[in-house]
Nucleic acid binder design. Sequence first.
DNA 1: GTGAAACTGCGTCTATCGTACACTGTGTCT
DNA 2: AGACACAGTGTACGATAGACGCAGTTTCAC
Lengths: 231, 231
Amino acid sequence: MGTEEATALLWEGLAAPKRGPRPTLRLDAIAGEGIALADAEGIDSVTMQRVAAALGVTKMALYRYVPGKNELVALMTDIAIGEPPRLAEVEGGWRPRLYAWALRMSERFWRHPWTLRTTVGRRPFGPNELGWLEESVAALDGTGLEGGEKLDVAATLSGHVRSLVQQGVARVSEDGIEGRFTALVRGREERFPALLAAMKSAETHDSQNKAFEFGLERILDGVGSLLEQRA
Amino acid sequence: MGTEEATALLWEGLAAPKRGPRPTLRLDAIAGEGIALADAEGIDSVTMQRVAAALGVTKMALYRYVPGKNELVALMTDIAIGEPPRLAEVEGGWRPRLYAWALRMSERFWRHPWTLRTTVGRRPFGPNELGWLEESVAALDGTGLEGGEKLDVAATLSGHVRSLVQQGVARVSEDGIEGRFTALVRGREERFPALLAAMKSAETHDSQNKAFEFGLERILDGVGSLLEQRA
DNA sequence: GTGAAACTGCGTCTATCGTACACTGTGTCT
DNA sequence: AGACACAGTGTACGATAGACGCAGTTTCAC
């Protein structure tokens, strides 16, 4: 499995050739077309065939730029995630910074929901994905947390963002606000009583943003109470 | 896309035929073989061909039991996740219950890491997956949280479990403790200083369980402090 | 200049995948 | 007994990722 090639492609890019015909394509154009396709029709619609067709080229031409499809998707993913925000400019210490981090991260996921799928499991990390992690860890500098703890907070935060965006995307793509989810519970009230009650009471006020922010505040509260306890 | 068929299969199972030859297979045996295959060689190795071969049958025979591969995977997923724990027996209120919930959930994901992939994005929910959600929401009964808030806490918790298991699985399947992850940061210290420092200080003490529990405690702390604040 | 070398994009081919469909055999109900 | 419903199989199709060889193009060394 070409994880080394993918890593090289993500970090070093494509070595410019010194001889031979001028390349018709550019790596970022290929990735860009793949991203556009994934945004419009989902990640499953991204095939070498279709990406190549969008660029006016045969699919085999792509293999001059990319070792294989996995590597292309990895590249698309890192580009779609984009550069991390510069949190050093955010005033107010760790909490506003982490808050801003989570907000912008969720924004990226919303813009390219398919990255939720392509960033699951073992995979090569690109510079941008690692950069986002760096920023979240750096936001905790000066709090007195140990290194491992910082990583843990970052993981928890990232998990929350992913989870809520995913849930939000699923909810939007349903028919109406309730959707299939509620339909399942209905008629089985005796089996999922707590769930039904919670959804009933949530129907009125629950917007997706509220859900996201609520969990986020809980996590940050938890970090805060640990810090106070140690001070 | 056959989401209705998948839902029917997950919730109602297979209607027993009244005429014709006896079926050679059973639905749970098919799903079980798929699960075994996914556990051993990963979800990508699960093809109709291989599942059928493991059962001593042609691949087309499976379509007498399952509408298609998506539905089979959905079924495998719900079975692999398994029945939710009965948290009502756990003493001590919402906190120990949610703690137990997270622990057992993570155990399930560890046992079948491929379910992390198959439970992403829009999909039909099975009774077990919904049952786990029910249990986590029910654990918050009596806390005074609103319905929407309960759902939010459940989502945050589930996100944490998924995130940390995923990270743990990735870490285990690396070479050694550090793995490719650290290798990337090394030689680029100027680009990821906070990350490098955190990983360095984490090298000594950080076990996967600690990471998981740390984030979990933070989330529960956050919920706790909200409850206290309202009391 | 000129030829060798390097590189491009294309056409062809293969293996594998999910699945549609027709067919034969088998068990049960009328 | 016969009709009917269902079982598993074999064959076929379209789509996929990718290997490989080829012909044309550009640049470098001489």
